[in-house]
């Protein structure tokens, strides 16, 4: 079962849609006017247009191509070319389970998302995208350190799973977690979550630190592999 963090809650305001990837699957994640979040295969059932380019109208996501609208129950609500038609409930998008917890949007392609318990005490800080491979990011992380408010120096320690890096984990109380979301061989997004020990200045240090990691990671790519 693949559970993937696809973004931070506060990066998906109401009436917005964004693309994401879970494994090899291209998905669209959107939030309705009333706040309901859905994650669908990124393909309009009508003519195959990516739904992440669509627009939210109230409680529906409309495809950019022909304006077909789909509701939070995944079912087609409206076909503009045939305004009098009440679309049958059998016309629907391919939907996945999405759960919003600890400020993160988690998607599972095949069942209920399994969210690691250690995230309960963490708050989202920010997301950052890297134009390089996962390995380049990990190796740049290993070369950098981050100082906490109490002077403790954090370094990349415990790789919890393929997607999650925990910084400082003496009693399973991480001060910082980095969730990796791989979008392609040459593109990685990371979501940073911190515990409540950080001051505002500390959170700013986290933000600068991940930008330093990005500069180092992206330097590692030879020019002929750079994804421009």
């Amino acid at each position: 079962m693949v559970t993937e963090p696809v973004g931070l809650s506060n990066n998906l305001p109401i009436k917005r849609v964004m693309p994401a990837r879970v494994g090899d699957t291209d998905i669209a994640v959107w939030r309705s006017a009333s706040g309901v979040v859905s994650a669908w295969l990124n393909r309009c059932p009508h003519r195959g247009m990516r739904l992440s380019h669509g627009f939210v109208r109230g409680e529906s996501l409309a495809c950019l191509y022909h304006g077909w609208q789909y509701g939070c129950d995944n079912k087609c609500k409206y076909i503009p070319a045939h305004p009098a038609l009440e679309p049958p409930t059998t016309i629907q998008t391919m939907a996945y389970t999405v759960v919003e917890k600890h400020g993160v949007l988690w998607v599972s392609l095949d069942g209920t998302p399994e969210i690691p318990a250690l995230f309960e005490k963490l708050q989202p800080v920010r997301s950052i995208s890297f134009n390089c491979s996962n390995e380049d990011v990990l190796s740049a992380l290993a070369e950098t350190t981050l100082t906490c408010d109490d002077g403790q120096v954090l370094s990349a320690s415990d790789m919890q799973s393929q997607n999650i890096l925990i910084l400082d984990n003496p009693q399973n109380k991480p001060k910082l977690a980095v969730l990796f979301q791989k979008s392609s061989a040459a593109n990685v997004t990371a979501h940073l979550l911190a515990d409540n020990s950080w001051s505002i200045d500390g959170l700013i240090r986290i933000s600068r630190w991940c930008e330093l990691v990005r500069r180092r990671a992206e330097i590692k790519i030879p020019d002929n592999r750079r994804n421009l």
Binding site: P45, R47, R50, Y65, H82
Partner: peptide
């Protein structure tokens, strides 16, 4: 072009099984 570069798959399917054409198509 913003549509054409975002239609999946990139080739044109001659079997529309995974699409829902209506009279407008």
């Amino acid at each position: 072009r913003s549509i054409l570069e975002n239609q999946l798959p990139r080739k044109l399917p001659l079997d529309p099984k995974m699409e829902i054409p209506t009279r407008a198509d």
